[in-house]
Design a protein around this nucleic acid. Structure first.
Lengths: 206, 206
DNA sequence: CTATTTACATACATTCATGTTTGTATATAA
DNA sequence: TTATATACAAACATGAATGTATGTAAATAG
């Protein structure tokens, strides 16, 4: 009952990734053995080792499956002025869209949980931190552009530099995401995330 | 060479805690065995198990050694109007003081690192998240009081509620701390943390 | 001064995770 | 049609971590 077709193999591969993500988000990366992942995916460790080098590789792939699409979508919401003319609204929509994805897409939600409170950034995962920092810088730059735009349109109520505003917004949102993830019951942050975003943007509005 | 005096025992106890903190922050909680902790502290696992129930207990104690004093000191900087009259300045000073402690005190720095990027909040550690949320709520409340004060003194440039401002500040600072910890090189955040805080507070000033 | 804790060190038992190797049925290429 | 590579399963070997149980010398209580 072995030697599946190429498509079958890809299916198993994806099932393993899904199983890993689910178990990572349930029990943390360290306490999730490849044996458990295999069992949860309905295969043996042989299959896991066939498709992936080790647990770390699985972690990276899980991360990429969420973040590569995310990075691709940034420009659409944030920089595309076709949909929304008001720059401040574009920033707001970008933040809201991220929250929305967290609410709607389980894979994204699980991945964020793993990345924020269910893995340890040491050894092979230590350099992921660098990646995160670089990603953040990119996002801040883009937000800065939009604030710059808003500034030119005299939509901003202070004379702070767009760079300062962008960084402040980014830190705010980073903090919000962290609390969102930690607030498993949802009472404190998950239910109010949208309002918090709107308030934050509102603070800049003339 | 056994059976130390009570003071000696307390010294070993503290050495074990210190060893745990150092190894946790170097290699993460999961990859730090009690054997390694014992060796690093110059004792055997017997001593560790004598003083602590298990690794989780050590984690909690490490956390408390930093957070209990921190909570105690909050009111001093934040609510004591004796030192600083300007409420906005008091908030700023509170945030700056926290950054300052991170810069100066190695134990605090290591503990923050462990709590934010080198442990997994699952199983026995899952309820620490609840603790964190509660702590945050307390801090937000206190910040809110100070903003309320600032509002009454007409120091604030917007008509947003003190509660909104407090939450926004808290999320900003949470985000900042997370980036601070992740930015091990220091180029992106650690070196600019104070400026970022001042900018944030400045955004509220009339 | 003796009995009893105390503060560990040492030894033991068990479990679990990892990586590698080997076996194998079948899809696929030639 | 046959040879080979593929997609796994199964078995093997190793190492590491945990918890507990036992041993023990010295501090301390009575």
């Amino acid at each position: 009952m072995v030697r599946k077709t190429k498509e079958d193999a890809e299916i198993t591969r994806q099932r393993i990734i899904k199983a890993a993500r689910e178990l990572f988000s349930q029990n943390g990366v360290s306490k999730t053995s490849l044996e458990k992942i295999a069992k949860h995916a309905g295969v043996t460790r042989g299959a896991v080792y066939w498709h992936f080098e080790n647990k770390t590789a699985l972690f990276h792939i899980m991360r990429e499956q969420v973040f590569l699409p995310f990075i691709d979508r940034i420009d659409d919401t944030l920089l595309a002025s076709t949909s929304e003319k008001n720059p401040l609204k574009r920033i707001e929509n970008f933040l809201l869209a991220t929250i929305h994805t967290l609410n709607e897409d389980q894979a994204t939600r699980q991945t964020y949980e793993v990345l924020m409170i269910k893995c340890e950034y040491v050894d092979e995962l230590a350099d992921v931190l660098q990646q995160i920092l670089i990603n953040c810088s990119d996002i801040v730059e883009k937000i800065e552009q939009v604030y710059q735009d808003a500034h030119r349109q005299h939509l901003i109520n202070s004379n702070h530099s767009p760079a300062d505003l962008a960084m402040d917004t980014h830190l705010f949102f980073g903090g919000l995401l962290h609390m969102w993830v930690k607030d498993i019951e949802g009472k404190r942050f998950r239910n109010h995330a949208e309002a918090l975003v709107k308030t934050h943007i509102n603070l800049r509005q003339r």
